[in-house]
Each structure stands twice: as structure tokens, then as C-alpha cells.
Computed example of a mutant assay.
Amino acid sequence: MSARRGSGPTMHDVGRLAEVSAMTVSRVLKNDPGVSESTRERVFAAVDRLGYRRNQTARSLRLGGSGMIGLVVTNLANPFYSRLALGVQEVATEYGFRMLLSNSAEQADREPALIDGLVDHQVEGLIVVPAGSRQQHLAGAMRHVPVVLAARPPAGLDTDCVLVEDFHGAREATACLLADGHTRIAFLGNPPALYTGAERLRGFWAAHEEVGVEPDHDLIRQGLVDAAAAERATLDLLARADRPAALFCTNNRISQGAIRALYKAGTTLPLAGFDDFDLADVLGLPLTVVSYDADEIGRQAARLLIDRLAHHDGVPPASRRVTVPTRVVRHGVPDGADGPDGATPEA
């Protein structure tokens, strides 16, 4: 067995000699406790025989390819996607890959061209946050490279994805408002065609059903695409004679628009929202935020993709779904207020 000329032995070479995948070699070299002792011994014997140097990292997973993976997000201006990209880059760098980043600007019709462009640049795999529910173009890309979806699930595709606990987080945050005695809660949401918008509305509704309260349909606003739209919708709600007693927002931009509207109206309402954001703890507002590790979404997506690349010449793994957990954090709520499952105030 010989390595590629001028490159030295690779992790793939070690795996072939040890009769394991390159990913297993990586796990052994990282002292992963989940690897059996017999496998560990075979890998180290192959390392010694080939003279493999661990500081060559997992560059070998590229197996002679471009060494690039593509990432497509929907709004790079949103801190969520910036953190997701950093998570992807962290794992990509660890395994010797470079990342090419594209931004669809939430325009589903732009996404196919971005995907085609990355494939034309010979990326070895793609991580995509779909801008819409139509994903046929991704099926075409999957004939050339593996594709992993992030933040939104596949629609008619057999591929891996990494999601957030959208339903659970929305249900828990809404339940906190209900437990505080607020029964007229407005819902400010992103487009309902988006998975996150639909799941978070479902969680909002479930929290009401669990306590026997019927949400007011007149207080539900959907299709809000940015902070400005959320601000206008909130001002409209505040102008009603029967205005809401609290607000639930489905992402950080909508929360920020709602907060700006409250400031302009010179009023304060309890607000719950998905996505933590900078300075949430010092605004002096009664805020309940659904927090999670956006970097971890990117890290998990990159690991799934690299694992698929490691199986490129063998039987690929079955499609997998990884869910990143959420937790409720409360800022500026009254003393004694407490949410479900022991969610405690953080003032």
C-alpha cells in the first residue's frame, strides 16, 4: 500500500490497513472511549507500520478532493447564522477542510444557482439552510455530493439534518407567560411556510391547550420577515383597545422589532422570544428567551457531512436527525415568577 506521491500516509491509508473507516481512525487518535480496545490496537499498529504522523490531522478525509465544503445560509446578517457558520468552520478546520460560504438572502429562487455554483467549484459536500419548502434542486446536488440540512428538515429527501427543539422551546417559553397569569398573548411569527415558523406556532398553541386557554386568533401575526415588519405589527397590536398582555416572538429579529415598538409606544409588556441576543439581560424588560447553542448546530452538521465523506467508498450511513436542545432563560421577571419544569428567573 502506498500513499499519494508527495503527501505521506493518510488517515484513509491507516483505515484501510486497519480495516476501519477514516472516521474511526480519527476517533482512535482523539482517544474516543467508544472505540473498542481491539480496534484501537489495530489502528495504532497501522499508524506505526505506515509511519503516519498525527499532526497531519484529517486532511486525508479529502482523499484527493478539493478540500472544500460549501455552506448556504439564508441571512448572514442574522447572528444565528453567523454562529452556525463559525461552528461549521471549527469542525471543517479540525478535519483539514476549507469552507465556502453563500448567502441566499432568504430568497428561495436564488438558492438553486448558489448550490450549482458551489458544486461547480467542486466542493466535496454541502451544508444548507433551505430558504423555502421546495428542495428538488437539492436532490439534484445530491447526485454529485452529500448534502446535510441545518435548522430545517428535508422535504422529500433522504439526507441528514440538524434541528433545534423548536416546538419544545416555544411551548416552554409560552408556558412561562401563561404561568405568570398572562392569557392574552400575541404571536409574532415568521412566514408559516417555514418549518421554524410552523413548529414554533405549534408549540405556542400547545402551551395554551395544556392550561385550557384558547389563543386569540386576532392577536396572531405571521409572515414577519424582519425587525421593521415586527415593529409595525407590534405597534398595530398596541393600538388596539383590547391590546395583548404579553408577546411571543419566533426569532431574535422579531423580538428586537417588538422591543423597539414597545420603546416607541412608551410602554412595557412581558415578552418571550426564540433566540437569545446580546444585552437581553440589561434591557430592564420582563424577557423570557429560548436559548440554545447555534455554534453546535454548525458543528453537528459538519460532523455529519464529514462522516458521510468518510464513507464515500463504502456503504453510507442511514440518514440521521440530530436535535440541539433549548433552555428557557428569564430576565427581569417579578420575584417569585417561575416557569414550568423549574425554569428560574435570571434578573
Rank of each mutant, 00 (worst) to 15 (best):
L157K: 12
A151Y: 09
V145T: 08
R134M: 07
P146H: 06
A155N: 14
V129S: 12
P146I: 05
A139D: 11
R152E: 10
G156L: 05
L138K: 00
L138N: 00
R143C: 05
A131C: 09
A150F: 10
L157I: 11
G132A: 10
S133Y: 06
L157D: 13
I127H: 02
V128M: 11
L149Q: 06
V128K: 06
P130G: 03
P154M: 10
G125R: 01
G132Y: 02
H144K: 15
R143G: 06
V128Y: 07
A151C: 13
G156T: 14
G132M: 07
L138Q: 01
H137E: 05
R134L: 11
A150M: 13
A151D: 14
I127C: 12
G132T: 08
I127N: 06
A151Q: 08
V145M: 06
L138D: 05
D158W: 10
E124A: 08
V128H: 11
R143A: 08
P146A: 06
V148Q: 07
A155S: 13
G132K: 03
Q135E: 04
L126F: 02
V145K: 08
V148T: 15
V123A: 01
G125Q: 02
P153F: 11
R152L: 07
T159W: 13
P146R: 05
T159G: 15
A141G: 01
Q136M: 04
D158V: 14
I127R: 05
E124K: 00
Q122P: 04
L157S: 15
G140P: 02
V128L: 11
P153G: 11
V145D: 09
H137K: 00
L138G: 03
A151T: 12
I127K: 07
T159S: 15
M142I: 04
P130D: 07
H137I: 08
G132I: 09
